[in-house]
Amino acid sequence: MKKEINLFEFPFNLGLTKKEHEIEPGVKKLPDWFRKFGFHEKIAPKNIFRLVSPEYTMNFDKETGVKNPDQIIEYAKKQSELILKNSNNNTFNIILGGDCSILIGTAVALKQMGNFGLFYLDGHTDYIPPKLSPSGGVAGMDLAIVSGLGHEKLTNINNQKPYFLEENIFCIGNAETDDEEYVEQIINSKIHYFDLYQLRKNGFRKTSEDFINLINEKNLDGFFIHFDVDVLNDNIMPCVDSRMEDGIDYDNLKEILQPLIHNEKCFGIEITILDPDYDPNGEYTQPFIENLIKIINNKD
């Protein structure tokens, strides 16, 4: 990694609906969990920034059709300010969540910096309007929000709508393809969509290279990677809130991420949804961190 690394910790969980056995979703523990297993030490960032999360609630808002919109919007604004204040062309930014709703704050910041693309690597599309969400959790519709689908309060923060143009987004890795109404939403959008089957068919590295070609052809200012760990196969990453059997392995992940992370136009990457409560001994977290560090450091 030639650029200096900034590490942002956004331990936010208000985009998720807690399960019956939970006091609150454990994803907010991810930054401290990574530190425990040496991620911070091995990455050796120049700076570490942290934005404390508000207390967990599950307040459903009829106007927006989602839970906790006011807290999510306020946090997103603070996120965007922190990112804008502490990033430039010479930094690579690693963002540790939290749930997927932390993408909104980064998206607002990037929109103010220029015209950016988004590489959305996730086991779900997260591209649905509130009316199709049984839970009302923003973490399940963050891709829709950052591309302008949803209530204006969330999609038009600081009058920046849309934060990403749909035609500048690749959404890849969705393994939840049996809900036709859910999948139809993204198929009918302008997003470049590769479900898990299409991703394998197109090729992992080739899909990333196709995305980079798009960024270059459109002369965009850069791009950002969203990485929800539930895109990984359940055998290697079961500690997520919405498990699925199929998914990619670490060799596939390396093929996908290396061309992206080491491209000069890559603004950074966010890691979301890994829940330490489901991995009490770190048996899944430790190999994940080892593989991610190898990819970031460009090691075999």
Rank of each mutant, 00 (worst) to 15 (best):
T177R: 11
I273E: 01
N89R: 02
G148R: 12
M1D: 05
D126G: 03
L220K: 07
Q286Y: 14
N93H: 03
N213W: 14
A76I: 12
S135W: 12
V240A: 00
E180P: 15
E4V: 12
L14R: 05
I104P: 15
D277W: 12
I102L: 08
Y284T: 01
D221I: 08
I236N: 04
T155A: 08
L82Y: 12
L16G: 14
N298K: 02
I289T: 00
E63C: 07
A109W: 00
L214W: 10
L260Q: 03
M244V: 07
L260F: 02
I48M: 13
T272H: 09
S87I: 11
D210K: 04
K28S: 11
F34Y: 15
N159V: 08
L257N: 08
I191P: 15
N263M: 06
V52F: 13
E181F: 15
I236Y: 09
P69C: 02
N168H: 03
K2I: 05
Y182G: 00
L214Q: 06
D178W: 11
N219A: 11
L51S: 05
A139H: 09
A139I: 07
L196H: 15
E74Y: 11
T285P: 12
M1T: 09
V108M: 09
F194H: 12
E283R: 15
Y120M: 05
L82P: 04
G26R: 04
P276K: 13
F116C: 03
K131M: 12
R35F: 11
R205Y: 02
T106E: 03
K67M: 13
G136Y: 00
D126L: 13
M244C: 14
K78C: 05
K190L: 10
K265E: 02
L84N: 09
F116S: 00
T106Y: 01
Y127N: 08
F223M: 08
M1N: 06
L165G: 04
V231M: 03
E209V: 11
P280L: 02
E180K: 01
I73M: 13
V27I: 12
I23M: 14
N90S: 09
F224A: 06
P287L: 01
S87G: 02
I187D: 07
G140A: 09
P287W: 13
F204D: 00
N93T: 09
F12W: 01
L16K: 14
T91N: 00
K131N: 02
E20C: 11
S80M: 06
M113P: 08
H21E: 14
L7S: 00
T17N: 15
D228V: 10
M237V: 03
C100F: 13
D195W: 07
F194P: 13
F211V: 00
L110I: 07
I225V: 15
M1I: 02
G173P: 04
Y56P: 01
N86A: 14
I48V: 15
H21V: 14
N47G: 04
F267P: 10
E167D: 02
F223Y: 07
F211P: 10
D230N: 04
S208W: 08
C266Q: 05
E41T: 06
I104F: 03
I225M: 10
G150V: 01
L84K: 02
I296D: 07
V138F: 07
L220S: 10
F211K: 01
I212A: 06
Q160L: 08
